[in-house]
Design a protein around this nucleic acid. Structure first.
Ligand SMILES: [Mn+2]
Ligand SMILES: [Mn+2]
Ligand SMILES: [Zn+2]
Ligand SMILES: [Zn+2]
Lengths: 127, 127
DNA sequence: TGTATTATTGAAAATGACTTTCATTATCAA
DNA sequence: TTGATAATGAAAGTCATTTTCAATAATACA
């Protein structure tokens, strides 16, 4: 993987946004600087970044998957199926859990951004 | 949700197959009995079955999501990103883990078919 | 240095999983 | 019954993502 300018630019975009972005959202931001950039280039660069582990790709329940920088401080999410609220949790229970699954299975787990779905406390009250 | 024949027929298909099926695969099986059934009907019925918790829907890394009966004996999977091998694990660690996340967050977790990605032992050796 | 090799890119078109619309039919509660 | 509403088939549409292909840029290495 060459250190192409588009990949680096995407990393900068992801660094600047402390949020999950769809490929389209990344594309819209990139267009401001790289006027002629194409969505296919974005997808291909993201694919490479995901492959080398610099970026996570997740289905958070929307129509498109979302990308995010894999930071030093890994985190995970709970997504409410009713109101689509997302909460972030940084929890050593996750890594403990994944470690034990790794030991038991011999798999080297690459899932680095766990997304669990559920019903948030507020929506539970709403019956 | 009415107890429509299509939903019941889909449940029977899922019971008979001890495997994950895509909507298209279910459609192909259903066509043998319901000659005129349409894919949109399949998708709508599956959506209802997922909503009432009878069927799980998961992204196992393929191009289409897969559906499976939610059995009494819940299970989860590890999927190898290299050779696409899938292993099943029934593990109380998962429910313990999810329980603790529920307690901590107040969320009522609906994820009932966890899919974790990784590299299987064989593919690890292949360097 | 060139120069061959290979990765990356933009443009355009294609893919295909899934959804939507709409008119018709089946189910079910009252 | 009957009236409301859910389920269905057919057809068309959506749109996120991929593919193809020719051009260009980055690297290896002679
Ligand atoms: Mn995140
Ligand atoms: Mn399964
Ligand atoms: Zn909620
Ligand atoms: Zn493998």
């Amino acid at each position: 993987m060459r250190t192409s300018s588009i990949s680096n630019a995407i990393l900068k975009v992801l660094e600047s946004q402390d949020d999950h972005l769809t490929a389209k959202e990344i594309y819209e931001i990139m267009k401001k600087t790289f006027t002629a950039v194409d969505t296919s280039t974005i997808y291909r660069a993201l694919e490479r970044l995901v492959h080398v582990g610099k970026v996570s790709v997740s289905d958070m329940g929307g129509t498109a998957v979302v990308y995010e920088l894999v930071s030093k401080n890994p985190h995970h999410h709970l997504v409410c199926e009713k109101c689509h609220k997302q909460i972030t949790f940084r929890n050593e229970k996750v890594s403990d859990f994944l470690d034990s699954i790794e030991k038991e299975s011999g798999f080297q787990i690459t899932t680095n951004h766990l997304v669990l779905f559920g019903i948030c406390p507020e929506c539970q009250k709403k019956k």
